[in-house]
């Protein structure tokens, strides 16, 4: 089994990549570590969206699960005082996965714009409730205390960074194995021809539902990890539709090519935003938006296509299309 897992090139490289990252992490200054943690955690949510995208579905409401995960951490602390990483993650996983399962019962029957808008509507319900309820922190949200590991309170950020890397690696391997399974192979088939899939004897609704719940659970864990890395939750940064938009943004930016792509895209996004914010405090949104336009125009397959191009020798020879200046400047 283990051999077969590592015979998968993507998994092998993900393993190597995350291992290198965890080693580099000991040398990185705190701010890079912070942004890397935000990026990796967000990448987890994007990984879920990638799964949906490959099925031909775009969710504009994954901030619902992202927020549920983050608020599960904050609420757990508020009502029980628990700061343990395992309990926090478990709470986020149960809440986000559970709600995702119930909402999935409805959403699995919808496709395209209806799916996107319905998921958006569900997420804005949570946003409305949080903003209106003073007991849930209203627009101010809550501070989240430092994470402990079975009672141990580390003095640096590194243990949390390492945990995030471990979770991301597990999720990457899990999703990759799932995509290779029979059910996973249905992903693109559902997008291409639902009727044919039904005739093969599979339930399309169930296939969509399973993927939806997986992506919800991933978004919930992502939200929990960001809440822990940041030390703050609030509806505007965690649950608002702009957060869903951001996740879709990173998904497009990363490209659907590989399960590793979301992490590359999300970390790039995090640093792009940090530098844009620093260099152009009056117009940082413009830079972020402009970058997405550039990527859609010049790299329709996302950042991953750049990496794949470097990888494949055959494609490395620049043909006319890839040598356009846009591809390089983007």
């Amino acid at each position: 089994m283990i051999r077969s897992v590592f015979s998968d090139k993507t998994i092998l490289w993900a393993f190597v990549g995350f291992a290198i990252l965890s080693l580099i992490g000991t040398l990185l200054p705190n701010w890079v570590l912070n942004n890397a943690m935000f990026g990796l955690a967000r990448g987890l949510a994007v990984l879920g969206l990638l799964l949906m995208w490959r099925t031909g579905l775009i969710s504009f409401g994954h901030a619902l699960y992202f927020g549920l995960g983050a608020y599960a951490v904050a609420m757990l602390e508020k009502f029980t005082g628990t700061t343990d990483i395992f309990l926090r993650l478990l709470a986020a996983l149960i809440v986000a996965g559970g709600v995702g399962f119930v909402i999935g019962l409805v959403l699995r029957h919808y496709r395209g714009i209806f799916f996107a808008m319905l998921s958006l509507a569900f997420s804005m319900v949570l946003y409305g409730v949080l903003v209106k309820t003073e007991a849930l922190g209203s627009t101010d949200g809550f501070s989240v205390s430092q994470t402990t590991f079975l009672g141990w309170r580390p003095s640096s950020k590194y243990p949390l960074f390492l945990s995030i890397i471990a979770i991301c690696l597990l999720a990457t391997i899990g999703v990759q194995l799932y995509l290779r399974s029979a059910l996973g192979h249905l992903t693109t088939s559902v997008r291409d021809n639902e009727i044919r899939v039904e005739y093969l004897g599979y339930s399309v609704a169930r296939a969509v539902h399973v993927k939806y719940v997986i992506s919800c659970a991933l978004a919930g864990v992502a939200g929990a990890l960001i809440a822990m890395a940041l030390g703050q939750v609030d509806p505007d940064s965690m649950v608002n539709w702009t957060v869903s938009g951001e996740l879709v943004f990173i998904t497009i930016m990363s490209g659907p090519g590989s399960v590793v792509a979301p992490f590359i895209g999300a970390i790039t996004f995090e640093f792009l935003r940090t530098f844009a914010f620093e260099w152009a405090p009056h117009a940082w949104q413009l830079i972020v938006g402009g970058t997405l336009l550039g990527i859609i125009f010049f790299l329709p397959e996302g950042l991953w296509s750049l990496i794949r191009r470097l990888w494949t020798k055959k494609e490395r020879r620049r043909d006319r299309y890839t040598s356009s200046a846009g591809a390089r400047s983007a």
Binding site: G141, L230, D234, D236, S237, M238, N240, F277, P281
Partner: peptide
Amino acid sequence: FADESGGNA
């Protein structure tokens, strides 16, 4: 000078 927009987080 830095921008305060974007929410508490």
